[in-house]
């Protein structure tokens, strides 16, 4: 018996963004990473091609983190006082990109001067040849002083810089434009705000094709479904031709997943929930893979077991797709 055709007739695709630049392109990266390009609902070969597998960036902080749970300490504890060594570890663990967070520049976290941030970014770029994502500290006045310097120091490397928002976008957009970087556009849980940020940024002359959307992230069991639906709605809009929603999406999975009780509570919950050593990575892996079904192109992650599971899942889901 023949069954009805169920492929949707999409009129557009998600745009592609390439992060990093090789020597031939004016940078020093060993390779670049391209994300986006999806022409259908995630991982359905019959619905539309997915040219690039979702990429994974591994988190590196500029200084020793506070309060990271034991499963993460076991992986990074010996290197996390030094961002360069930490970045090397991230590469060993199979990162596609390094996700560097400048936390020490925050007034409450050390108030480091721009020069120190620049020094760290340069050292990481020198030590590890993967494409780089760099986030400010989310304290606008300080980020405005630091991020232009960072952008300048990394000129030619085509980093992904974060994040511009509805209210704070001018300085970082100008810096990304001047020094050839791509941009993360943040929009808390709201598609209309995502579009608005894209309009503001492109009004300054920044190309839409160099933007990655950050719709905020929630952990499994802690509001994940809201983000899942925002991803689905965004993907449907993109495939239906809405150019302002057609940018690939980055999600901060590791940060959110390792914040919640299920990924932190140790002995006291072991009987009810099983050992943290397995439970924590599972929480991160499932947060990631659930959200991948909504539509995500770049995941920031932390634990190697979670990363391995996501890679295996993506490998299976991409069978018959890809380059």
């Amino acid at each position: 018996m023949s069954i009805p055709e169920v492929k949707e007739k999409w009129s557009a695709r998600v745009s592609e963004v390439t992060i990093g630049a090789t020597p031939a392109q004016g940078g020093t990266r060993a390779r670049t990473v391209t994300i986006g390009g999806a022409g259908g609902i995630p991982f359905l070969s019959f619905d539309g091609a997915l040219p690039h597998p979702p990429a994974i960036a591994i988190d590196v902080l500029d200084k020793q983190p506070v309060g990271w749970p034991k499963p993460l300490e076991e992986v990074y504890g010996d290197v996390w006082a030094d961002p360069v060594q930490w970045a090397r570890r991230a590469k060993e663990l199979g990162a596609d990109l390094i996700n560097l967070r400048l936390t020490g520049i925050h007034p409450d976290e050390g108030d480091w001067p721009p020069s120190k941030a620049v020094e760290i970014v340069k050292a990481v770029l020198e030590a590890v040849d993967l494409p780089l994502i760099v986030w400010g500290c989310d304290f606008p006045e300080k980020d405005q002083r630091v991020m232009p310097k960072v952008a300048e120091a990394a000129q030619g490397e085509r980093c992904l810089l974060g994040a511009v928002s509805q209210t704070e976008y001018r300085t970082l957009t100008a810096a990304a434009q001047a020094y050839g970087h791509t941009l993360i556009a943040a929009s808390p849980c709201d598609i209309n705000i995502a579009k608005q940020v894209n309009i503001l940024v492109t009004d300054m002359g920044f190309p839409l094709s160099d933007i990655v959307i950050y719709p905020s992230t929630a952990a499994l069991g802690y509001g994940m479904e809201y983000i899942y639906s925002i991803l689905e709605r965004g993907r449907l809009a993109a495939l239906s031709g809405d150019k302002l929603m057609a940018q690939p999406v980055i999600l901060d999975v590791g940060f959110e997943a390792w914040r919640v009780k299920e990924a932190r509570a140790d002995e006291e919950m072991a009987d009810a929930w099983g050992p943290l050593a397995y439970r924590g990575p599972a929480w991160e892996a499932v947060t990631a893979t659930d959200l991948l079904q909504g539509g995500a192109d770049l995941l920031i992650m932390r634990h190697p077991e979670a990363i391995r599971a996501v890679r295996e899942a993506v490998g299976q889901l991409m069978q018959g797709d890809g380059k």
Partner: peptide, 19 residues
């Protein structure tokens, strides 16, 4: 194992809540 089923159940709770 309990650590295996808990994330599956959490996924179910999330996905099936009324948006």
């Amino acid at each position: 194992e309990r650590w295996q089923l808990l994330p599956v159940l959490a996924t179910r709770q999330d996905i099936f809540t009324d948006p």
